[in-house]
Design a protein around this nucleic acid. Structure first.
Lengths: 108, 108
DNA sequence: TTCCATACCTAGTGATACTAGGTATGGAAG
DNA sequence: CTTCCATACCTAGTATCACTAGGTATGGAA
């Protein structure tokens, strides 16, 4: 389970430039050292949701003698949303760290 | 949204000793500097779920001239589960940090 | 020509956290 | 004494989410 942070992760994967679904999955897998090996059924609906929300835009690419691909790019709203998500992640992970003993929590 | 880490947080809140629902909510709120101000409708069902799973045990306390309280304690399985959840959180947050640029991700 | 990797898609499922209610009691305020 | 608030518990229903389990199609390798 990606626990609500999938959107941030997908947006971040597109920060380096446009990419298509399959490549995004690879980027996330390698970027997380195989921790997140996301099934397509997770990523494609997320991409559609993010596009619907105006955070991504897409266009079909059909390279001559190649498979069709839907290329996704961050919109301006998408970049802004990513910045927000990053801040939210910072707050969230900081709070969980505090509660789980990232700072210190267990009695000596 | 607590994004799947609620169980770990609740278990951790009980690591210091038995407590009742209301107190657990307070512990989490203060321990997270108000980041997690959980509604009762989130915490009580979670406590029931964790007890059902054998990770917590509970007993009614009726102090003379006081309100009844259901006190929860970590079971042995609960302590073990907490250790697992902590490890899982470490892996998870490390991977998200890597993807979001905790290490470095944005182009210069 | 057969098969695998690529590349896309969606309907349905299970879990989760939350909303929005409800009950009851002890103590303080009036 | 009664009214109100904080404490303390509870649950049914809901929205969302990530995932399972399918399906389609094509290019290149065997």
């Amino acid at each position: 389970m990606l626990k609500g942070h999938l959107d941030a992760i997908v947006l971040a994967a597109l920060e380096g430039g446009p990419a298509h679904g399959y490549a995004i999955i690879e980027t996330i897998r390698r970027g997380s050292t195989d921790t997140f090996d996301l099934p397509e059924g997770t990523v494609y609906p997320a991409l559609h949701r993010l596009e619907e929300a105006g955070l991504l835009s897409s266009a079909w690419m059909v390279p001559p003698g190649g498979r069709r691909r839907r290329m996704y790019s961050l919109t301006k709203a998408g970049s802004a949303a990513l910045a927000d998500r990053r801040k939210a992640w910072g707050r969230f992970s900081h709070a969980v760290d505090a509660l789980l003993g990232g700072g210190r929590a267990w009695p000596a």
